[in-house]
């Protein structure tokens, strides 16, 4: 059962990622990214991370992708022109990507002592997670909230129209 679920959702993940590269319209890329993120949420659930699966759907495929689709529609982004990148990307980039993939794959295949995962095994309950998060890691958690606040202020300051405050004061 686990194997079947893994194969289905890993396949969906890879298909979505490849489709993201092949599509030329940003909306289609955004929707295939949603497919990738939802399949990743199922994979997290298979690995026993139930809280992260929920957070993945709410934060990534909910909030962040809505932001992306909103910006695509706001800016009326059309079809991209295919130039297939610069010469540097072609001559250096693609061999580098293949090299990175090869090195990662060889390292992973030579890892010692990696176990297996079965369904319903090694589930980490949300209770245990929250106990660690709110006892040992309370300070980083609070600092994250400050980071989010600063990011909101920065986003508002960057996206504001030039001279809009002048119009407001008049």
């Amino acid at each position: 059962m686990h194997l079947v679920l893994f194969l289905i959702f890993a396949g969906l993940c890879l298909a979505g990622a490849i489709n993201l590269l092949l599509q030329s319209h940003p909306i289609n890329s955004a929707l295939s990214l949603v497919v990738v993120m939802i399949s990743l949420a199922v994979l997290y659930l298979l690995l026993g991370a139930e809280f992260l699966a929920a957070a993945q759907i709410i934060v990534y495929s909910g909030a962040i992708m809505v932001l992306f689709v909103f910006v695509v529609m706001l800016l009326n982004a059309g079809r991209e022109e295919r130039t297939l990148g610069s010469k540097v990307a072609k001559t250096l980039g693609f061999p580098a990507v293949v090299a990175v993939m090869g090195v990662l794959a060889t390292i992973i295949l030579h890892l010692q002592g990696m176990g297996t995962v079965a369904i319903n095994q090694g589930l980490i309950p949300t209770e245990e997670l929250s106990r660690v998060l709110f006892h040992e890691l309370l300070l980083p958690f609070e600092i994250t909230s400050i980071l989010i606040l600063i990011a909101i202020l920065g986003a508002v300051a960057l996206a504001r129209q030039e001279g809009s405050e002048r119009r407001l004061t008049k």
């Binding site: 686990h2 993940c13 990622a17 993939m101």
Partner: peptide, 21 residues
């Protein structure tokens, strides 16, 4: 059961596709 290395390989493949994109 599924070996955990498969998950790591999937992660590496997704990362490489990200660089490619």
């Amino acid at each position: 059961d599924v070996p955990l290395t498969w998950y790591l390989l999937l992660s590496a493949a997704l990362f490489s596709l990200g660089i490619m994109g």
